[in-house]
């Protein structure tokens, strides 16, 4: 499997890029070139230099440092939103599959369809008007809209596994239901869930950037790629660099995790393994 991973170009590119972003985010915990919140009125809107690698913004803050800390926010958003979606979605999806044909399956899936029917960002805005803006609430809102996605994938995959004869064999061996789920179902659907997780991770980063752009996500002075974009709008003609850089960061991380997901899909495909 490792050999196949190393020969897979989009997995490799995705893995290297995601690793790079993770490293930058981790590094920002200990070190940034400058204090990302420190303003220098005399140094406003300066271009890249030896002192400020990627220049400064309208308050004279170091753009490179803000971007680094922003990566931390983006990754944390993805991680928590995916954890919420995966945790609840997996549980509900597997439960629905297990109860297929009974009312509880229909109840779970129709309730999730209801959530799914609203555009994610729109409903996040709705939730945030109740909970109030802020990174934590934004992450929760994004996480909630990941639940139906994971639940659907989990339900479909679980149904496929449950239909196979090794489940009958386990039942004949008197393996308890929960043990069948843990030992047979989960390992066989894990690949699909991991692939879905990396796709949702990318979407969560995008959603957080979108919400922060609208002023509903990360609040100042905490750095966020989405808010950097919003701030840069005013100075678009004067210094397009300020919009380009966070835009590039967002695009690159979304691309990285999508490529990673695509690669994982191919690598973890059990059909390839059977041969």
């Amino acid at each position: 499997m490792i050999a196949r991973a190393l020969r897979h170009p989009s997995f490799l590119i995705g893995a290297v890029l995601s690793l790079l972003i993770c490293t930058v985010a981790l590094a920002s915990l200990f070190w940034t070139p400058e204090d990302p919140t420190k303003m220098r009125i005399l140094m406003r809107l300066k271009g890249p230099s030896a002192e400020f690698w990627l220049g400064t913004d309208q308050f004279g803050r170091d753009v490179a440092s803000i971007l680094m800390v922003g990566a931390r926010n983006a990754l944390l958003t993805g991680l928590v939103a995916v954890a919420i979606g995966l945790g609840f979605g997996l549980m509900l999806g597997v439960m629905a599959a297990q109860m297929k044909g009974r009312w509880i399956d229909d109840a779970i899936m129709r309730a999730l369809d209801f959530v799914f029917a609203f555009p994610a960002v729109l409903s996040a805005i709705l939730i945030l008007t109740f909970l109030g803006p802020g990174l934590v609430n934004a992450v929760i809102a994004i996480g909630i809209f990941n639940i139906p996605v994971f639940a659907r994938v989990a339900r479909g995959a679980t149904l496929q596994v449950l239909a196979r004869d090794f489940i009958r064999a386990a039942q004949l061996a008197r393996v308890p239901k929960l043990v069948i789920l843990r030992r047979h179902v989960l390992p066989n659907i894990a690949g699909l869930m991991i692939v879905q997780a990396s796709t949702q991770f990318a979407l969560a980063i995008l959603a957080e950037a979108g919400l922060s752009y609208l002023g509903l996500g990360t609040q100042p002075p905490n750095p966020s790629w989405g808010r950097m974009l919003n701030d840069a709008q005013t100075f678009l003609a004067m210094s397009p660099r300020l919009a380009l850089l966070p835009g590039l960061a967002i695009a690159l991380s979304v691309l990285a995790f999508n490529l990673l997901g695509d690669g994982l899909r191919d690598i973890l495909d059990p059909r390839l393994e059977e041969r």
Binding site: D165, F166, N188
Partner: peptide, 24 residues
């Protein structure tokens, strides 16, 4: 079972597959 490709869990080692009825 009929289909020997569907009756063994692809993610489980042969030892554990055969021992499963014993374990329970």
């Amino acid at each position: 079972f009929q289909d020997p490709f569907g009756s063994l869990d692809p993610r489980m080692r042969i030892l554990d597959s055969i021992a499963e009825p014993l374990d329970h």
